[in-house]
Design a binder for these strands. Structure first.
Lengths: 194, 194, 194, 194
DNA sequence: CATGAATGAGGGTTCATTCAT
DNA sequence: GATGAATGAACCCTCATTCAT
């Protein structure tokens, strides 16, 4: 593994474990087995590492989403399920990010913009997915406003399910993740044609 | 206003504005018009101020909730609406808290416990409220599992609506808050008797 | 007990327990059950308390010494023994003082002077005591230089026996104190007439 | 000279001059011509510097002792004399240490242990040295108890001679140090075979 | 005599970042 | 690419002391 990747991966693990605040750049360097100076050769500063982690999250997420799309016909409950659990995997892999998101964004305009882009894209994808399900007849016809709210509802649950568990002091495991899926299914159930 | 309150209030404003990380105890003292030493006369440390803010949030929240209960019959859509917007007010007043919640909790076991207590209590209240609505006939009969999911759904949206707006880069105003209420109504709509 | 005495007594206990450095004036006030302001009504500053403790040590020591003199004929081994163990009692009662003596003196000229006075007086007393023993025939005749060295030797052991135990990690109890007496007797033994 | 050594050496001088209490880490850094951060790059904290000073004292002392042993046959009065004045040199070089010893030890268990080790070793060395002198016929035969007391007596005087001068307000110079040697000789004189 | 809130200089320490090698 | 010593601003917090009441 290249040094740059080693830094990113080490940072991810440490950030998840202790939060960005309590992980120093020297700490990362040491854990990655390199010198502080070398870390700064590969990254301009700490923020830069966080940004790199976000880009990685976005790229990997996009890739995985393509795979889901290929395996499961879009617009079905199954594809929604798969997408949900895929996103949870990322939320978990990069959980420091979700935990501190607003704080991080508040102090880094560049990150804010990039996150905004990705977030918008994801919302669009969800919206289209639901619209497709409607067009294919899996869901009953919905007016635009209801469709909008439903989309956001699905997205909100998907985004914050891990935080919800976190806050409630619940472990993240197969069971609790499954409960998240159930919640989504429960939401959709009201709109299924049968 | 007493010094202790002045500190708490100043801290709340600064934390909301810049995040706990970027607000130093000396900042708070200066903004409150007192000496650093005096701040530490009233609070053992920075964490202690954060805890005090949580206690205040909890106490004020409880108080407000009682008022809502007295004005609106529990178990109605209206009371739910009122409770939602009341909670949003607190989420906004103490928004630093919600933003950094998991990070804060991760590093302060005492806060974690206190938050857990309050959170559990709130979930219980919501659950009972929905059950009452059902018993009164506003909602159609639901099995326990569905009722549990619905409760969590309502709670999740209530908790994270502000974060959702934050993340999406949306302003917090009457309009966006109202959209949160609508989402809740939309969720409930599926279970109303008519 | 008067407030002033309460402060002195509390300070002595705390200083012995934790050292002057780690005992704050507020700490003393709290333990004495009074307010910080009140402490400063009775003493100008922390140094002043330490000085008062020294004066008390000196006064009590003088008083006790008179008692020993009355009970045991001066110039006997027995009176030396009694004096030794009497001084150990004070060294123990005010052990913080002996522990930090040089440091305390270095930063407080007034204390330095007072301690010097008392110390000189004590040396004189010991010297005279030994001389008496010689004149009474308990000790064999000694030239002035030897007598001077012997006096200092006795005084040095008496002064530092507790520190010696402290340093060696030994408990201060009847047994270890007795060993100190034995050492003195051992020193004197070489000069006894029989 | 390396930075680490520069820090240690500077600390030693300042500690001797003003006592550990009144020397701040920033003082040391400034006097050593480095930044505060750099000091903390080489030492974890202030205690750590003090520990390093003790280790240096112990190491240098051991080294010097070996030299004395090679030059002067062990078990002679001369070797004792040399050892005494050698130790006084160290007591003087690291006099802050002896002055504050008990206080320092009280608040640093690690230091306490290390000091205990070294102290025990030194007592053993003295004991053996006296025993050798006896076996070689320089000293008359002594029973174990007397030998033990004599050993401790010698050690006590050696350890505290500088403190004794300090307390008495006497300068440390050739003359006063010589008086210490004389005291030891005076003690030994009683046991010499001739 | 007594209270206790208030002061403020400064202490130990951290950590993102730089730079000579 | 890499090292690791070095920087320095700033942080959290302490505590002897003061002062209005």
């Amino acid at each position: 593994m290249k040094t740059k990747d080693k830094i990113i991966e080490t940072a991810r693990l440490l950030f998840n474990e202790k939060g960005t605040r309590h992980v120093t750049t020297n700490h990362i360097a040491e854990a990655a087995g390199i010198s502080p100076g070398n870390l700064y050769y590969h990254f301009r500063n700490k923020e830069d590492i966080i940004r790199a982690l976000f880009e990685r999250l976005a790229a990997e997420g996009f890739e995985e989403y393509q795979k889901v799309l290929q395996e499961y016909p879009p617009g079905t409950l199954e594809s929604m399920d798969q997408t949900f659990s895929m996103i949870q995997t990322f939320n978990w892999r990069y959980r420091f990010f979700k935990r501190e998101l607003t704080a991080l964004i508040m102090n880094d305009p560049l990150l804010k913009e990039r996150f905004g882009d990705v977030n918008r894209m994801q919302l669009t994808v969800i919206g289209q997915s639901i619209r497709q399900a409607m067009e294919k007849g899996f869901l009953r016809p919905l007016d635009d406003r209801t469709l909008g709210l439903l989309t956001e509802e699905v997205w909100l649950v998907t985004l914050f399910w891990l935080n919800y568990l976190d806050i409630g002091g619940e472990e993240v495991d197969e069971q609790t993740l499954k409960r998240g899926s159930e919640m989504l299914r429960n939401i959709m159930a009201n709109y299924l044609t049968r």
